[in-house]
Design a protein around this nucleic acid. Sequence first.
DNA 1: AATGCGTCTTTTTTT
DNA 2: AAGACGCATT
Length: 811
Amino acid sequence: MSDAQTPLILPPGSGPSFGASGAPSGSADELLEGLNPQQLEAVTHRGPALLIVAGAGSGKTRVLTHRIASLLRNREAWPSQILAITFTNKAAGEMRERVEQLVGDSAKGMWISTFHSACVRILRREADQFGFTKAFTIYDSGDSRALIKRLVKDNEADALGLTPAAVQSKISKLKNELADADSYARDANMNDPVERMFTTLFREYQRNLQKANAFDFDDLIAQTVYLFRAFPQVADVYRKRFRHILVDEYQDTNHAQYALIHELTRPVTSSDDVGGGMLALMDEAEGASLTVVGDSDQSIYAFRGADIRNISEFERDFPGAKVVLLEQNYRSTQNILTAANSVIRNNFDRKDKKLWSDQGDGEKVIGFTGYSQHDEAQFVADEIESLRRKGTHYGDMAVFYRTNSQSRALEEIFIRSAVPYKIMGGTKFYERQEIKDALAYLVSVANPADEMALRRIINKPRRGIGDVTVENISSFAERHEMSFRDALAHYEHLGVGPKIQGSIAQLHKVLLEAQEILLPSNGEIPAPTSVAEGLQVLLNKSGYMDALRASRDPQDEARIENLDELVAVTREFARNNPEGTILDFLTEVALVADSDDLDDESGSVSLMTLHTAKGLEFDSVFLTGVEEDLIPHRISAGEPGGPQEERRLFYVGITRARKRLYLSLAMTRAQFGEVTVAMPSRFLQEIPADILHWRQSPGDVNSRGGTQSRALNARRPRQGSGSDQWGVKPLAPSLKPKSTAMDKFPGLVTNKVRDNGDLELAPGDRIRHDDFGEGRVDAVTGEGAKRIAHVRFDAAGPKKLLIKIAPIEKL
DNA sequence: AATGCGTCTTTTTTT
DNA sequence: AAGACGCATT
């Protein structure tokens, strides 16, 4: 990372100056124009700690950027003294851009990044202090899962019921709590063989990471905290440097991140050799000023350790903290906000907060129920086209879903309907086999200690190096106390056949050649294009590319394209970072998720999960798959607080919409290769009927819409007090909506859906329907559980019925 | 050591 | 339905 080396300490008597930096002219007042009173307070308040409770769409990014700009313009801080933490790299980029617009080039010296990027930056500098080198690798979850898998196997831990996935998630949770294997062992019941085994795995995992000179995602934060605590003089360097720390999305911080912030905002511990004068001394005695922005209603990352208490107990943690509430929404129409408010209201133990808008009611929320997920997708595609014709750009529309797997059906239909789209996140480019292989080659050069990377590529392409040979190398390395990587150089003494010796020698040679390009041994600074060159040497001379080209597997053609793309990425990297090294490149690749790539105005519809959608906004939003077991997700039902988090997720989705919101679902959904009947999500019930217009309601789809007697359809009152099992707070009588969106299809949510099994119908058959009476089948379309009967009823006329669940019988 | 076949498992969300 | 994985065969 090229790090603008700005002074850590203000020279006495001189404030920051922007004269030469090309900052746009403009007074501080200009920064405050157009802010509402609360926003103004949030921008101008000065003190040790500030909590900005920012409802969705309340202009928090504006407040944050203007706050930073005003610190700079008033000469209260140097750019280098500002640390701003965002949740994603994309958000960081956007914030930097917006601050730049306000203050010009002086934005360059600021640290605006995610927790993880900031920690990598610190760790690379300080790694030597505690047993790592600055060439450390960052293991993504796939890498660490591979390692854990090996450990589980070696220790036969699966016999105790410990799966790699479970071990991985438990280790991750513990690290987020700043626990390590030792501290876990102290509290665990060591008589329990499972606990004992887990402790062993945890310990070995950590030892392996250390040996490989690697950190996993969670380590990046936890080890930085450890570093600060173990080496106060190192922490002091950063405490002196950062005088203003701002954290966005504070509701999604976990304990480790909280601890990191706490360490950074502490007063400097050792005040020796400050040497910069009194001003610095006085400043540091107080610790950095902290600003956090958050909204507990948008906390959706508890599953990865986010602790809502960080925000709810902020005032206790940081005495003297000021709290500012932003409740006016500048994004959405009132109808959308009403929908959002009436959903989130059902979460108990939340501070009541009501978003309001002065933009007028706008259009109603539109609902649609499809027969199948494809039917639903077709509705979305058709509607998108219709909006497009009326003037909405594709780029202003987005489709959300709960799980990544839901994107498939949408994609299929979009392709068929020629709707341009892009999928944010999802199966990531950097998770593809060939890309991981290529990166493993680079890592093998950059961090020779990383045995995992080397093992990954040692037989890719096939060189005849199998498990036996790998074991040979490994034991040779152990016997001679050298690394796995170094053992390759002794290919003649590994006790393997001549043919395999040749393979190893060849690989060794290629790695050396790339090393000379990427990290020249004569100490020269590598050329900007070194990463691209090194990568090409590795891919071409290792035979990897040749093997792919020779293959007749059609997938391998796509792999070649992907690798070409990766080379293009390295070129792009060289352009953007002329001084970037292989380490910088690998860092960027490890931390920058695909959802971060910002080809914004690309004129295509964005598809993404609800989680990815956080922080974004669109004119028109399609929230799909609004079904039980999807949102709220089935798995969440068992987790404490799960259903409430799901509701917040739904809330986040709703509040992304500026003008139009669509809620859609399907009556059947294929999953696990089986077609199952889906039920409307309970959250639909929570939206008042008068703001939700159903184009096709669940009742329409199974053809009993409102025709049954009210008595039969009346919802049974729920018993008990307090919250029920779903964490729904019973509404006070006065608050209960007179009618909700679900009254149109009562019974569907709570009652079991009828199942006709494999009832066979053919054109010409006579059937009887509970509501429509007798009729004649005209045609049957669809397959399996999605078969639809087109029926002409004697009295009710033509109807389409889902055979599997319609209340019908064959006559 | 590589290939091929049959049997599982999978779908929660992410830096 | 698709991909991962293990086992057996070549």
